[in-house]
Each structure stands twice: as C-alpha cells, then as structure tokens.
Computed example of a mutant assay.
Amino acid sequence: MIGLLVAASAAVLVARWLLTLEPLRDFVAAYPGHAPLPEGAPVGIPGWLGWQHFMNAFLMVLIVRSGWQVRTERRPAAYWSPRRPKDGTRRISLTLWFHQSLDLLWVVNGVVFVVLLFATGQWMRVVPTSWEILPNAASALLQYLSLDWPTENGWVNYNALQVLAYFTTIFVAAPLAAVTGIRMSGLWPSTARRLTRLYPVELARAIHFPVMLYFVVFIVVHVSLVLATGALRNLNHMYGGQDAVNWTGFWIFSASLVVIAAAWLAARPVVLAQIARLSGEVGR
C-alpha cells in the first residue's frame, strides 16, 4: 500500500514537472484532451441510455459477485440440472446457474444497447473517428496525472481518454466476456468437436478472469471520476437526463443503489433455488 502511494505521488510530481516544459505546454494547448466529434453528433444523453446504464450496472455487480463465488466456492449449497437433459448437459452448482443466467441477461441488454447506440447516432460519442483521439488522450492522461484535470463536458463530448476507455469496454472487453463465458457454459455445443479443439475451454478461462478484473478496475475508476469531477452534474447527465446542477440525478442514482443492494442481499441460495426451479431441478 505504501509503495502504491509513493508511486502515485511520484507520478503526480513528474507530470507536474513535465507540464512546466514549454514543448509540453504547447502540446496540451494544441490538444486540450477532447477530439472533435463528427458533424451531426448528438448532444445529450437520452432516457434509454440512462436506463441501459442502470441495467448494465445492476447486472455487472451481480455477475462479478457470482463469478467470484463460482471461482472460490468449495461446497455448493445446491445444484441445478435441466428437467430434460440433453447429450453433454450436466448438473451445475446453483451459483454457476445464477452466474450464467445473469450473463445471458447481460448479453441481451448489451445487444439492445449496441443496436440503439448505432440507431440513434450515440455511437459517435464513444467510437474514435479520427487519429486526433490519440494525442488528445495522451494530453488528458497527463492532465489527470498532474491533478489539473481536463475540463469536463460529458453532455456534449467525452474527453479522448474516456472515449478510448468506453470503446474498449463496449467493443473489446464485453465481447471477450461474452464469447469466453459461452465457451465455459452449458450453451457450448458438445458435438462440435473440431470447434472445441480450436477453442479449448482452458483458453476461455485464461481470458475470462482477467476480463472480469478489467471490469472491476474500470468500474472503480469510472465511479471515482464521476464523483470527483462534478458529482451532481455528472449524475444528472446519466440519471436525470439533463445538463444541470441539482439533486435530481443524485436521488435517482441513490435509489438505483438501493435496488442493487437489495438484489445483492436477496441473492441467497434459498431465494435462488425458488427461481431456478422455474427452469430445472434443484437439489443437493
């Protein structure tokens, strides 16, 4: 812990020193951290995006929790099996059933999100559209490290570092989580022997866990920056659907946390077993 604090302090001091150099001051002036958006890019955050954001957060918190439980669980409280087992199907722990069920809901939510993203033009806000994104991202990173953070106006245009992070999360990390999760689940066709050899389950496991860690780090950094760079305005953007500084978005966000916390507490074997029985048999 002390080592991390020392490294962070050193990074801040180095970034501040670099920004005293004239070439880097000129660089930041030329590339303030925001790459220009394509003509016709939408302004603001629509209601559907706020709802999708909540659903993604709700599912992701439970997915990370259940995924960690699957990884560390030694004695499952119960097992689930389909009522009409097919060739290759097997009994799985109730925790794994919960994790895979959440994964399916998350994939459906993600597909809806991507379709709406391109149908409404919102993709232009999270997909790099010019090479200017790279120097602007470097500039934004330098400003973050110096603690003299780039000007935020997420209602109109995310800074370049945010764009790269959102693009990576939506179009790289999320698909990797989905395809590796499917490979490790009962949805994988057991009769596809050649495909199974080309894509071994060990490879899927080796990718799936680091991707989960990426999501955890992304969520922690994302929430920290939302709260540290103008919490009321940022929460209003996503939850209140308005570019204003008031408490509307905060209270909606707080209510969403209550819902997530309630789901976290309710996700116990006695509750999950009742839900799981709707799609199969549950027993020890």
Rank of each mutant, 00 (worst) to 15 (best):
L102Q: 04
F218A: 06
D243Q: 00
I182T: 14
R83M: 13
H99C: 11
A244V: 13
S9F: 09
L4F: 07
A57G: 10
W48L: 02
G47H: 13
A8N: 00
G240Q: 08
A29M: 15
V12H: 15
S66Q: 10
Y199A: 14
T129G: 15
L18Q: 03
L19Y: 00
L141F: 05
Y144P: 01
I63W: 02
L272Y: 03
D243L: 03
L5A: 10
P76Q: 07
Y166P: 11
W131L: 15
L176W: 09
N236S: 00
S224Q: 03
V270D: 04
E152K: 10
Y239V: 02
Q122R: 13
V64M: 12
F250L: 14
L13M: 08
L235Q: 13
Y31P: 13
W264K: 00
P189V: 09
N56W: 00
V201W: 10
H237N: 08
A276F: 08
F250Q: 09
A276K: 07
P32Q: 04
L161I: 11
A273K: 04
I207G: 12
V115K: 09
Y144W: 10
V156A: 06
A119M: 14
A173T: 06
G283T: 11
L145I: 06
Q122T: 10
E132L: 15
T248R: 15
Y79W: 09
W264D: 05
D243C: 01
L105E: 03
S254V: 11
L5W: 06
A231L: 04
V282E: 12
H222K: 00
G67P: 12
M238H: 04
I219D: 06
I207C: 12
T169I: 01
V61R: 03
T191E: 14
A138E: 09
E152N: 10
T196V: 10
S101L: 04
F98A: 08
T120F: 13
L203K: 14
I260A: 07
L278H: 05
A119H: 15
Y158H: 15
P150V: 15
P76G: 09
T89M: 14
S256F: 13
G186A: 15
E281W: 05
T196Q: 15
T191H: 15
G44I: 04
W106D: 05
T120I: 11
E73V: 08
W68D: 02
L141G: 11
I275K: 04
H34V: 12
G280S: 08
V245K: 05
I170A: 07
G249H: 07
V70Y: 03
W123G: 12
V258Y: 03
V271K: 04
H53N: 01
V114M: 07
L5F: 10
L176Q: 08
A174R: 01
E73R: 05
